[in-house]
Structures are given as structure tokens and as C-alpha cells.
């Protein structure tokens, strides 16, 4: 790996003899990406130096609360907005110089979708296909294929304004993949959908991934990032606070979390802290409203020992839970706030 990275980049790119790394080529690569907006109150830095790498074949999740800079970053990557600073390549093309080439390679499904409400789903699909250069026969075939695949036969020839939220979302996805893009951007694909429609979109994303499409999605749902993505980046206040696979990120939260419910009126909290602070398996102790949270390695093994120790000291324990860390714990640890709270306030 070290020797490879020391080679001049051009050698790797042009010399066919150099084997491609197993992980696949980078479809998105940004360095120091920034975007500032000027408003009457002054300048707002929406994106403040984002470095991202998304490789071919990944479902990459971009997780963060509302207003964190997710959508702005995505709008830069999809050519809708120029960056204020930094560099970015998408599908191998520079975003500043080769907008047209980038546009041919990518598909984009925005939050609002963008189907014309006064046309039918099929008419929307045909227009999309023709715009990417298909002739009308090709466009008709591809539209029929997608209508069958996404189960849209029942409503494909009705006007889009009559669609339910879930039906519309299926059409939006179909529009995004009509021209078989190499890289698909999904901006909050399941926001506002009922659980069934969400599951359906997730299945479709997995199916597209299985066919080799690379997917970049933004979300503020942790379960979506956790269950759907191979790799993710957490963004807050315009900066990436963590990047990696969901498992790696969760491992940053030193193992497991033991939550102890204690009598917070007494000195129990202080005594437990005193007892456990110096144990080798305890990585961190954080007080909570109900008592304490212990960040430990191998929670199942150490839990009995914790209980024995506290029992020997006659400390009354009201409740005990052992939990694996969630992405929300990662977010909490990195930003000092819960993702749920952040979304609630936004």
C-alpha cells in the first residue's frame, strides 16, 4: 500500500499493467471542499473543508442532522452548485472543468424528486431517457422495464399529481436510474415515507447495489445509515467528524455500554465512579440523568464483575442494561449532542 501510494498518480491511472486495487476506483474524491453563502447577516459557512472518498461498488451514507451541510455537499457533487473552495472529482472528472461529462455519468434523486406533476409517470420517464440521448424506442423499452421492475404498472399512466408518497418515490428512483448511471445520488430517500415504503426503497437500493451501481445517499436516520450503507461519513457543522464502515465507527465507542440506574440523590454515583474508575476494562464513565454509563470492552464478560464489586460495597442498583453502541452514540461522542436532539431542534 505504501509503495503504491508513492507512485506518481499518472502511472497508476494510465499504465494498464498496474493491477487495480480490489476496493475499486474512487468515484467521488473531494479535498478541502468548502461552500459559503452570503446573506444579509454576513457569510455562512455551510461546508467547511470536506474530504471524502467514495469507491466504486459502495453504498456510501452521509449522516448528519438537518443543516449540517449534507445537502449542500450533495448539490456541489451533483453539479447544481459550484464549490467556494477545494477540489472534487466525480466519476473521474473534475467538477470545475468537466460538468457535462460528470452529468452524463451520474443520476440524482432530490428530496422533492422533480417529476412533472401534470404528466404521467411514463411520460416523465420517456423525457428523462430521451434527454440522455436514447431514441424513442430505447426510451420506451427502458421505461417499460423500470415500470415492471418497480411495480408501477398500476399507476404509470396516471398523472403524477395523483400519486401517493410511496408511489412518487418509486417513480423518482426510476427517473434517477433511467439512463443506468454509474453513480446514483439519493438525497434523504426515505424521509417522510411510511415504514412499508421505506423498506421498499431500501430493497431497491440494495438491488441496484447488487447490480454494481455505486450509491451515495444522505440521511438523518441512524438505522438507515447502519442497515443500508457499507461506509459512511458523519457530518456536523459543515465538517466530517468521522468516516468509516458502520462497524468501525461503532468500535470507536470502546466496546459496549453498561447503563446503571442509581439513586442519584445519594452518593451512589460518586462511589461507583470511585470503585470502577481505575479498572482496566472501563474506558470511560459518563453520568446520565438516571445514573451512569460505563463504556467498557466486552460487556458480557465484565458485567458480572461490575455487579459483584458494587454489591460488595452495598451500592443499590435499580436497573442495569447492556447495549451495543449505536451510531447515535458515535454521533454523541463526536459532537457532544445526540443526533435525535439535533434533528428535533432543527
Amino acid at each position: 500500500m505504501d509503495t503504491l501510494s508513492q507512485l506518481p498518480a499518472t502511472t497508476v491511472a494510465t499504465n494498464g499493467a498496474v493491477p487495480q486495487p480490489q476496493k475499486g476506483k474512487a468515484l467521488i474524491k473531494t479535498q478541502g471542499l468548502t461552500r459559503t453563502f452570503k446573506s444579509r447577516k454576513g457569510t455562512v459557512e455551510a461546508v467547511r473543508g470536506v474530504d471524502l472518498e467514495v469507491r466504486q461498488g459502495e453504498i456510501f451514507g452521509f449522516l448528519g442532522p438537518n443543516g449540517a451541510g449534507k445537502t449542500t455537499t450533495m448539490r456541489i457533487l451533483t453539479t447544481l452548485m459550484p464549490a467556494s473552495g477545494g477540489t472534487a472529482t466525480v466519476c473521474g472528472f473534475d467538477l470545475r472543468r468537466d460538468l457535462g461529462k460528470v452529468r452524463r455519468q451520474i443520476g440524482y434523486v432530490s428530496q422533492s424528486g422533480g417529476a412533472e406533476p401534470a404528466e404521467t409517470g411514463r411520460e416523465n420517464l420517456l423525457l428523462q431517457g430521451r434527454i440522455y440521448g436514447m431514441n424513442s424506442k430505447e426510451a420506451r423499452q427502458r421505461a417499460a422495464e423500470l415500470i415492471a421492475r418497480l411495480d408501477m404498472d398500476a399507476f404509470a399512466d396516471r398523472l403524477v399529481k395523483t400519486y401517493s408518497g410511496g408511489q412518487k418515490r418509486r417513480l423518482d428512483v426510476a427517473l434517477g436510474i433511467m439512463h443506468r448511471p454509474e453513480l446514483l445520488f439519493l438525497d434523504e430517500p426515505t424521509t417522510g415515507l411510511d415504514p412499508q415504503s421505506r423498506a421498499r426503497i431500501w430493497d431497491e437500493v440494495r438491488a441496484l447495489h447488487a447490480q454494481g451501481m455505486t450509491i451515495f445517499l444522505t440521511t438523518h436516520y441512524m438505522d438507515e445509515a447502519d442497515g443500508l450503507c457499507n461506509r459512511l461519513a458523519i457530518i456536523d457543522h459543515g465538517q466530517i467528524v468521522s468516516q468509516g464502515s458502520p462497524e468501525t465507527l461503532k468500535q470507536e465507542i470502546a466496546g459496549d455500554i453498561i447503563s446503571l440506574g442509581l439513586d442519584t440523590q445519594s452518593d451512589a454515583v460518586a462511589r461507583v465512579t470511585g470503585q470502577l474508575r481505575d479498572r482496566p476494562f472501563v474506558r470511560e464513565i459518563q453520568p446520565t440523568a438516571e445514573g451512569l454509563q460505563l463504556y467498557v470492552s466486552q460487556g458480557e464478560t465484565v458485567l458480572p464483575e461490575v455487579l459483584r464489586t458494587l454489591d460488595a460495597d452495598h451500592i443499590a442498583i435499580r436497573t442495569v442494561t447492556l447495549a451495543r453502541p449505536t451510531l447515535d452514540d458515535v454521533f454523541l461522542r463526536r459532537t457532544g449532542r445526540s443526533l435525535r436532539e439535533s434533528n428535533g431542534n432543527a
Binding site: T79, R103, I106, S110, G114, A115, I131, L175
Partner: peptide, 16 residues
Amino acid sequence: GRLRSGFIERMRVTPV
């Protein structure tokens, strides 16, 4: 109307 529905934004991502 077409700005509202997101149609124009969708078109602006295409090479049209």
C-alpha cells in the same frame, strides 16, 4: 411551478 416541483433542478443535473 416547475421550480416548486423540483423539475428544473432535476433537469439541471442532466446534460440537457
